[in-house]
Design a binder for these strands. Structure first.
Length: 752
DNA sequence: GACCTCGGATTATCT
DNA sequence: ATCCGAGGTC
């Protein structure tokens, strides 16, 4: 090893200069190629840099690119990685490296190996919606009311069972109520349903990968030999199936390098097990352990703030993250009236920095806890003509017409795909409605076949009106015609022709409302997206394209480097950095997210999430919260997040917003018992629909958490306050009568 | 079967 | 506020 290193350094100046730019630990991370390696990498410690340089170094050492498998967790991380590898390694090598998310790499392998587990290589991947729809149908067929069991909730339970590798027949061993027995039944049906549809859901991509590797030794050996060198990013976020695949693949050569930071583990809810990183030393003999503790990203103030927050977690590996960077500005904490005011403040602040301080838009990121929060920012950006991009939001793909186009394509690739078929069969209307479809469905279920297979035997379905039969025959004729075209047309050309023939575009054109013009445009956009894909990847087929679309959620991904501000959830922001970061919505109930407060482990995960958010910032960090926020069409009044108070007060600068004259709240008031009383400011007068300043003062003297007394119900505790400013309601928990929702105007609650 | 209206439930986070 | 399903009418 050492000899090799010296030789390389003298011969290839490029590697030499690359190593020169790295600190000692990073160099060690780059050059420790053989055997198990554990890299504990603090936030901003140049982890991606070390990983990518490591790959460049490996290739320089003569390791063949196709023997390298680099796995990441999210698409964002995968993309960042590929981009940076590309700048270090010759192009012909880059494309030979296997690098991507667990799901996309596994899907790629599964296409090759599909037949050995009873799938065809054209299997569909069901996204969350497809799964929920399939489950909804199952629930209906089992005659269970959808009230008690929402499809989405069940999908979640089944998914987490799968993440724990709990099969349907073992489900009731762990979960034992009668509800759970019903869930197990649905789970079973769901699995059969997927099988019949030649489809896998997201979790199956991981589980089936395990099946393939366990299936026979030859296959396992094949992939062990192909992937002689494994790199796993964000190892703290791997769940059980992901962990097992890594273990199996690394078994032969033990060349596995994992990188992680326990403080940034934020996917426990998806089955991630922090033990995987903590137990690495048990799993692999005598690993090289490297700690990256110098932070290159953030100012001292930002790093200290992050540190003061994460200190409140009990469970963690102790780490000494330090930086040579300057102190920098204090952290700005800003109170806003509502989500509109918050968005206006943030976007206006960004705009003024863009024009006055000459910082370009791409340097700004607005981070939030939930996707729903993006709307207000989007509106403000549009209003002020600020270029923006919502990263990772599914908005485009969730549109009906877009999903329909993909369903058409998915169906034609995999005619067994029931969910796609159901979506498109009557879109545009073909006279095949619920009635017709449900008799075919039950026929198909009896035959243990897919719906489309049942279409082939349409004449044997007795309880079907001839009108329905004729419509179905017309549809199968249409599909057969399309299948012929597919076999002799290039994918790109085929997609365009096919969608043209479906009549979707025609339908939108004929309707000719503003809405349908949008839809028409969106379909066109999908078609041009397809064209772009095949221009870039001429050797791939439609299945490859659809797989990519299903596993990547953002069509604007390619625009990520444009000069525009970034709006995203904190989960999406993981692994990224920005000069100026805004963390919005720091309110109780929102962040930390409701429900999690009472559960210590979950609260710790929320805190790690806040830690991740803070450490995205390089130079400036803004924290904002709103005193009321629209939810379910009603305002909710909340106190600031407890996380704010965990930041060392010395690091915080709480000022009024630029146009506000009078609010400078001392920190002590933030979490004290004083009722908070906001004042009107220019933002609210201009942008809020109802003027907050006119709110009768006395109604806000109460807030959630207060103990109150009611003339009839006696003492109680306010759980939440909601409603419109002129019609406020409090949800109060009384010892005598339990939970009551009262109108403050009339209830005459007395504070005690 | 298509279209309408009404009522209820719904909101984490990613693949 | 908005999306979805149920139930009614044409």
């Amino acid at each position: 090893m050492t000899l090799k290193l010296i030789k390389t350094e003298s011969e290839t100046p490029s590697i030499n200069s690359i190593l020169d730019k790295l600190n000692e630990s990073q160099q060690k991370a780059v050059t420790s190629i053989e055997g198990p390696v554990l890299i504990i990498a603090g936030a901003g410690s140049g982890k991606t840099r070390a990983l990518t340089h490591r790959i460049a170094y490996m290739i320089d050492q003569g390791i063949r690119p196709e023997n390298i498998l680099a796995l990441t967790f999210t698409n964002k991380a995968a993309e960042e990685m590929s981009l940076r590898i590309a700048s270090l390694v010759p192009q012909n090598a880059v494309t030979r490296i296997w690098s991507g998310t667990f799901h996309s790499i596994f899907a790629r392998i599964l296409r090759i190996e599909a037949e050995s587990i009873g799938y065809t290589r054209s299997f569909s991947i069901y996204d969350t919606d497809d799964s929920s729809n399939a489950i909804k149908d199952i629930i209906r067929n089992l005659g269970i009311s959808t009230q008690q069991y929402t499809p989405q909730a069940i999908r979640g339970k089944i998914s987490s069972a799968k993440n724990q590798m709990l099969t349907w027949d073992k489900y009731t061993d762990v979960y034992t109520t009668s509800n759970d027995r019903t869930i197990a039944d649905i789970y079973k049906e769901y699995e059969e349903n997927l099988k019949r549809s030649n489809a896998m859901d997201f979790d199956d991509l991981l589980l089936n990968m395990i099946r393939i590797l366990r299936n026979d030794m030859a296959t396992l050996k094949k992939y062990q030999e192909r992937f002689k060198y494994l790199l796993v990013d964000e190892y703290q976020d791997t769940n059980r199936p992901q962990y097992l695949v890594c273990k199996m693949l690394a078994e032969a050569h033990k060349n596995i390098c994992v990188v992680g930071d326990d403080a940034q583990s934020i996917y426990k809810w998806r089955g991630a097990d922090i033990k995987n990183i903590l137990d690495f030393q048990k799993d692999y003999d005598n690993p090289t352990i490297i700690r990256l503790e110098q932070n290159y990203r953030s100012t001292k103030n930002i790093l200290s703030a992050a540190d003061s927050v994460i200190k409140n977690n009990r469970k963690q590996i102790s780490k000494d993250l330090w930086t040579d960077n300057p102190d920098g500005d204090k952290i700005r904490l800003v109170e806003c009236i509502d989500e509109i005011d918050e968005a206006e403040f943030i976007i206006k602040t960004i705009n003024s920095k863009i024009s006055n301080e000459n910082i370009s838009a791409k340097n700004f990121a607005v981070l939030y806890r939930t996707n729903a929060q993006s709307l207000a920012f989007e509106n403000s950006c549009r209003k002020h003509k600020t270029p923006y991009i919502i990263v990772g939001g599914m908005s485009f793909y969730k549109r009906k017409e877009v999903k329909d186009v993909y369903s058409y394509l998915k169906f034609i690739c995999n005619p067994k795909d029931n969910e796609s078929l159901v979506r498109i069969i009557n879109e545009p209307p073909r006279g095949i409605g619920q009635q017709t479809l449900s008799s075919v469905r039950s026929f198909a279920k009896n035959e243990k076949s897919s719906i489309y297979e049942a279409f082939q035997k349409i004449d044997s379905i007795t309880d079907l009106a001839s009108r329905g039969k004729n419509s179905i025959k017309a549809f199968t004729d249409f599909i057969n015609e399309i299948l012929v075209i597919k076999s002799k047309t290039e994918p790109r050309e085929f997609a365009t022709q096919f969608i043209e023939k479906t009549g979707l575009l025609q339908m939108y054109k004929e309707i000719d409302t503003e809405d349908s013009i949008d839809r028409w445009n969106n379909v066109q956009q999908v078609l041009s997206d397809i064209a772009t894909f095949f221009r870039m990847e001429p050797d791939k087929d439609l299945e490859d394209y659809l797989q990519q679309v299903t596993l990547i959620s953002d069509i604007d991904e390619k625009d990520i480097n444009r000069d525009q501000i970034k709006l995203m959830t904190i989960h999406s922001a993981k692994g990224l950095e920005f000069p100026v970061v805004f963390i919005a919505g720091l309110e109780k109930g929102l962040f930390p997210f409701a429900r999690t407060e009472s559960i210590r482990d979950e609260e710790e995960e929320e805190r790690r999430l806040f830690y991740v958010a803070i450490t995205r910032a390089m130079e400036n960090l803004y924290l904002t919260y709103a005193t009321r926020r629209m939810r379910f069409g009603e305002y909710n009044y909340q106190n600031p997040s407890k996380f704010i108070s965990e930041i060392d007060p010395k690091l915080i600068d709480m000022k009024a917003k630029p146009t506000q004259q009078s609010i400078v709240q001392p920190r002590s008031k933030l979490h004290g018992g004083n009722p908070y009383r906001p004042k009107a400011d220019n933002y609210s007068q201009v942008f809020s629909d109802d003027s907050y300043s006119q709110m009768p003062e006395n109604e806000l003297k109460l807030k959630s958490g207060d103990r109150v007394k009611h003339s009839v119900f006696g003492p109680g505790k306010i759980e939440s306050i909601s409603g419109t400013p002129h019609n406020l309601q409090a949800t109060v928990y009384f010892q005598t009568v339990g939970r009551k929702k009262l109108m403050l105007q009339y209830a005459k609650l007395e504070k005690i």
